[in-house]
């Protein structure tokens, strides 16, 4: 019994212990898209894109272990999901593991550094499948009133091993900035983001420079529902185009003519609504709609190649444990 009386001494630091432990989510739902992913991923040539409509039943689990005190700590997380294609469509699987270290530079400036490994396999679009490893560092400012800024730098190597003719590897470097406007806890707030990404691939036609801008309205309380809406614009500039895309069928431009290039632009509007059914159990409805435009040609003579609209919806049940 003696040791039990040590409890007050040992456990009064329960604030520290509270931040130690396991948590997880189990999600299940249905998704429909006319292949949004095809049109928002870099490195996929128009010839490889498809307007395939796809329905799926998705189940996913995420597990997280964190060990945090006021000075920082570690977070480990694992995610696995399976989207089973319906009506003859193939499966999409994703497995991801990551570990992060969190630390405080000051009481307002925090740092997160981590590594991740991911396996993504899309049976309906093998070109989009990849295995990736990456590392990232994010410097974050957390203000008194919910305001803050994240400045993140990440590198990632992806192995697109399922591309039919020429499997390729690509190295991506991303600089990302997000600003969160002041708000009270659990109150709605705006955030804006900007990102720049450079991708260098084995296959030069998949080299790209991408820019993304976005604005979101978060934690929007609508009666008993919680909503989120966002608008994003993205531009991908490819230094070269593949022979299949070039009207002349050649990678070599005629004398006096610049190198043919491709520019993709995507606009996306997204919205989601969530409702707590009971403690830990949420129903979420999400939808997206957007437009994708791809132009080909040489500088000053760009021609519109592909112009398509896309949309998607999903409904999921999320159980947090």
């Amino acid at each position: 019994m003696l040791r039990y009386l040590m409890l007050p001494a040992v456990l009064l630091g329960s604030g520290t212990v509270v931040a130690d432990g396991w948590s997880g989510n189990l999600q299940t739902g249905v998704t429909y898209t006319n292949n949004l992913e095809v049109q928002s991923s870099t490195g996929i040539a128009p010839a490889e894109q498809t307007s395939l409509n796809r329905s799926g039943a998705e189940t996913g689990i995420s597990l997280q272990r964190q060990s945090l005190d006021y000075t920082g700590g570690y977070v480990w997380e694992g995610v696995a999901s399976l989207n089973q294609g319906l009506a003859g469509r193939k499966d999409i699987t994703r497995v991801r593991g990551a570990a992060y270290r969190l630390s405080a530079l000051t009481t307002n400036w925090l740092v997160r550094s981590g590594v991740e490994a991911e396996h993504y396999q899309n049976g309906d679009l093998p070109t989009g499948s990849y295995r990736g490893v990456g590392a990232e560092t994010t410097l974050g400012y957390v203000g008194e009133t919910g305001a803050g800024t994240d400045i993140g730098l990440s590198v990632k190597r992806e192995d697109h091993w399922q591309v039919a003719d020429t499997p390729y590897k690509v190295d991506k470097q991303t600089l990302k900035l997000v600003h969160y406007f002041p708000h009270q806890p659990r109150q709605a707030y705006w955030s804006v983001e900007g990102a720049y990404q450079q991708a260098q691939a084995d296959d030069d036609s998949r080299d790209a420079a991408s820019t993304l801008l976005g604005i979101q309205y978060n934690q929007w309380a609508i009666g008993t529902l919680t909503g989120q809406v966002g608008l994003q614009w993205r531009q991908d500039d490819y230094g070269q185009i593949s022979p299949g895309e070039n009207p002349s069928g050649s990678m070599t431009p005629p004398a006096g003519v610049g190198q043919p290039s491709r520019q993709d632009k995507t606009y996306l509007i997204s919205a989601s609504l969530g409702k707590q059914i009971r403690k830990g159990l949420h129903l979420r409805l999400s939808s997206n709609a957007g437009q994708y435009t791809s132009t080909l040609g040489v500088a000053g003579q760009m021609q519109e190649g592909t112009n398509a609209r896309f949309h998607g919806v999903s409904a999921t049940l999320d159980w947090a444990f």
């Binding site: 948590s23 997880g24 989510n25 189990l26 999600q27 739902g29 998704t31 898209t33 949004l36 992913e37 998705e58 996913g60 689990i61 995420s62 997280q64 995610v79 696995a80 999901s81 989207n83 999409i92 994703r94 991801r96 993504y120 989120q228 997204s270 919205a271 989601s272 979420r284 999400s286 939808s287 997206n288 998607g312 919806v313 999903s314 999921t316 999320d318 947090a320």
Partner: peptide, 12 residues
């Protein structure tokens, strides 16, 4: 955030 489906639309 415990999102087990990062690839789903809207990020949920």
């Amino acid at each position: 955030a415990g999102n087990a489906m990062p690839g789903s639309m809207g990020g949920m």
